[in-house]
Design a protein around this nucleic acid. Structure first.
Lengths: 146, 146
DNA sequence: AACATATCGGACCAAATCAGTCCTGTAAAT
DNA sequence: ATTTACAGGACTGATTTGGTCCGATATGTT
C-alpha cells in the first residue's frame, strides 16, 4: 500500500535531475531521456504532466525545453505527488446509498483525519532540494511506495 | 496516491464491525455479509485473509465462525494494512543495473526514510478500537486512500 | 517563406493489477 | 452420515497503469 506509481516515480527522478543541475538550465525531453536512460516517450509524457502542474516551466520551439518553475527548496514532495496522482487522502466515507448521512460531523472523522493529516504533513515537510541532495545522480527509479 | 484497495477497505469495515460487538462474539461469513451488506463471496474471501494474517481467529465446522484474535486496542491500522497489502514502504532505490551501489549508506537514505517512518508511525498509533469508536456502524466502505 | 526543433494534447494499446466468483477439500458438531 | 463452516485455490472480467504514437502549434534559423 501507499504505493506510488512508476510514472510518478519517474516524475520525481526527472525533477531531482533538474534540481541537481545548478542554475535554471533548460533541458529538452531528449536530453532528459538520455540523462535518465528512460525511454523518450515516457520522459516526454511526464515532462508534459509536470509542466501542466506548474512544477516545470516549458518553452516551445527550437531552443525550447523545460526548467524548474521554482527553486527546489520551494517544492514539496506532497506537491509533486499530488500533482501527479491527485489528492493525498487516506479515507473517504462512502455509505450504502452513496450519500454520507453523517456528513456534518464526518469532516472531523478523527482517526482517519489524523492519519491523513500526518502523512500530508510529513510529505509537505520534505522538499525537492532535500531529495536531490540525498539521491545519487543517475538513479532512474527510486520507486515503490509500497 | 496512498490509495488503499477496495478489498482492504472491506477488510477494515469487517474488523470494525467485529470490534463494535462487545465480547468475543463469533460470527460467520454469512452473518458478516448480511451485517455489512457486502456480497458473501467477498466477505468470505476477506475473512479468510484476515484469519490467515492472524487478525481474526477462525473456527471451523458447524457453530464455527470468526472472532477477533485480539482486543481491538491491540490492533493497529498499520498492522491491518500491512496484513492486507504488504509492507508500508514509500520508496526503495532501484538503480540502472538493478543493484544499488550505495546500498551501504542507502539504508539511511534520509528523506524517504523519514517519510516512511512518519507514515508508519502514525499508522501504528491508531488502533482498531479508535476506528470502531469513531465509525458509525453500517458503513460498508470507508474507502479511498487517494 | 520555408524549415527544423520542441512542446502540447490527445488517442491509443498492451500488460498488469484488482475485484469478484466459484469450486473442491477439510474440520467440527449433531 | 449429514450439515455447517472455514481453507485454499483457480479463474474471469473490469479497471488501471505503463508506454507509444501522432497531428497541431509555437519558436527560432536560414
Amino acid at each position: 500500500m501507499l504505493r506510488i506509481s512508476k510514472l510518478t516515480d519517474y516524475g520525481i527522478v526527472l525533477l531531482v535531475h533538474f534540481a541537481q543541475r545548478t542554475g535554471g538550465t533548460t533541458l529538452t525531453a531528449r536530453e532528459m531521456a538520455e540523462a535518465t536512460e528512460l525511454p523518450l516517450p515516457v520522459v516526454s509524457k511526464m515532462l508534459k504532466s509536470l509542466a501542466s502542474a506548474d512544477l516545470l516551466a516549458s518553452q516551445r520551439g527550437s531552443r525550447g525545453g523545460y526548467q524548474l518553475a521554482r527553486e527546489p527548496e520551494a517544492v514539496s514532495v506532497a506537491e509533486i505527488i499530488e500533482a501527479l496522482e491527485g489528492p493525498i487522502v487516506l479515507m473517504e466515507c462512502v455509505p450504502d446509498d452513496g450519500v454520507c448521512e453523517q456528513a456534518s460531523h464526518c469532516g472531523l472523522r478523527t482517526p482517519w483525519q489524523r492519519i491523513n493529516r500526518a502523512i500530508q504533513t510529513t510529505l509537505t515537510q520534505v522538499s525537492l532540494a532535500e531529495l536531490a541532495a540525498d539521491m545519487p545522480p543517475h538513479h532512474q527509479s527510486t520507486l515503490a511506495i509500497a
